[in-house]
Each structure stands twice: as structure tokens, then as C-alpha cells.
Design a protein around this nucleic acid. Structure first.
Lengths: 116, 116
DNA sequence: GTCCCTCACCTCGCTACGCGAGGTTCGGGA
DNA sequence: TCCCGAACCTCGCGTAGCGAGGTGAGGGAC
């Protein structure tokens, strides 16, 4: 039974934005999963929380779709880590998604502010 | 099998925002389902599309949670229509959700624009 | 009177995503 | 040696949006 007074615009993430945020995190160069998550959390000033149960499925999803490619390497802490790099298709996808995002935000805000 | 090159920030709606948009539509007074959908589409300049399969489940969900109450009436076209009215709890919920929405949008945008 | 269009309601089953819980491996400090 | 924490992973759940597939009734056209 779901609590009746529960989820206020669910979770810590707006569903569908995680892929975009990951792609964006890779724009400056390859990174491994853990650091991508930290990067998103840091840049959002801890507002967005990237859980493991969302992160890894998302990375695999993106790799399957060909937006990113993974390779094994060593982290700054000398630990085995899987790095991901943006593919050209991924870069293109990122621009598509960000403009779509902007469009949707604008649309929602227009409904929210009937003034003007 | 899902098409590999398919969904760009899924659907026509950002998941989780529909409830908020419906509540907002009722802020000026009761309305029936069909007109709520049209209202959202119009104010968003047709960017947001509210499908029947999303609308009615959402209305029932909101009613179950006590944010809105429904009553039968007659539409402008002299047809049987179910009107919904915002409850005090729903009004409160709306302000909660809109501020949460603003917070999330700001957070995502900060990740998207590492500049500044 | 009948036909049909449109308004307005509804349900079902699918898919996708986020998430919590659970788990593994291994480097390095105490 | 012990344990912490980095870094990876999977599974099952809940929930939301959506397409398809309906139902019933008002009202104009003929």
C-alpha cells in the first residue's frame, strides 16, 4: 500500500533527465561511474542524488544505445574502474536532449505562470 | 525490442509534472477533465500533450490522495461531465510541488551549464 | 427518424525509469 | 589481520505515461 501523502514530484531526480546529465558529465572527457555521480551531485549542490540503482542501469542503457563506450582503467585511488567516453552519436544526442529539456521546462513554466 | 535510436527525453511530458499541471489548472476554479487537458495544451502552446491514458488515471490518483474532489455536472456543450475542485490540501500540495519543481530545474540547469 | 460526428468518460496492458536492498572485489591504513 | 570505503553489479518493486480500445449521449444533416 503506497502512503497516501507521499511522493512530491517523485524522488531526487526528474525522470528522464539522468541520461542527459550523464552525457553532460562526459563532455569534458572520460570518467568512471562513481565520479560521474559525484560530479552531478556536486554541480547540483547536492540537490540531485544519483543512487547506484539508477546510475549503473543508466550507464548500461547509454552504452547499449551507442551514446557512450566503456573501457576499464584505474581510478585516482588506484582502484579498478570502468571509464566511459562520449561517442559522436552521444554528443549529438546530448544537444537533442538539452534543447528538448529547455522546451519542456519553458512549456511547464508557461502553464505554471498564466500571467503574461 | 525498443528502437535503439528512439526516445528523446521520453514522451510529451516530464514524468511527475502532470499532477502539478492539473492542480495548477484548477487554481482558478473547478473544471472537467477534458477542459483541463485542453487548458494545459493551450497554455503550453501545444508543446505538452495530455493523452487520455494519462489524464484520467492522474485525476483519480489526485482524488484518492485528497488533493481534488470530483462532482458531476454539465459542460458548456450540455454534456455530462465530471468536474474537479481543488481541496485545501491540494492547494498546499501545489505550492509544495511548484517549489520542488523550481528547485529541480535549477539543479539540472546548474549541471548543464558548468560555466559561471 | 436515422446517421454520424464529437464530447466526455473510462480501463487495460505495456514499457521505462528511479530506487532500495543486497551483494562482490580489492587497495590501503590502523 | 581487520576493516573501511571505493567501485562495480543485479534484482524486484512501485509508479507514471501512453496507446489502444472501448461506452454513452447531444445535436446537426438529411
Amino acid at each position: 500500500m503506497p502512503k497516501p501523502g507521499a511522493p512530491p514530484l517523485q524522488g531526487d531526480l526528474l525522470q528522464g533527465t539522468l541520461d542527459m546529465l550523464i552525457l553532460q558529465s562526459l563532455i569534458l572527457g572520460p570518467a568512471h561511474g562513481h565520479s560521474i555521480a559525484h560530479n552531478i551531485e556536486r554541480h547540483s549542490r547536492e540537490v540531485l542524488q544519483v543512487e547506484h540503482g539508477s546510475l549503473y542501469p543508466a550507464l548500461h542503457r547509454l552504452e547499449t544505445r551507442g551514446w557512450i563506450t566503456g573501457f576499464w582503467g584505474t581510478s585516482e585511488n588506484n582502484r579498478r574502474a570502468k571509464y566511459y567516453r562520449l561517442t559522436p552519436a552521444g554528443k549529438k544526442q546530448l544537444t537533442t536532449q538539452t534543447s528538448r529539456w529547455a522546451e519542456l521546462v519553458q512549456a511547464v513554466n508557461r502553464v505554471l505562470r498564466p500571467a503574461e
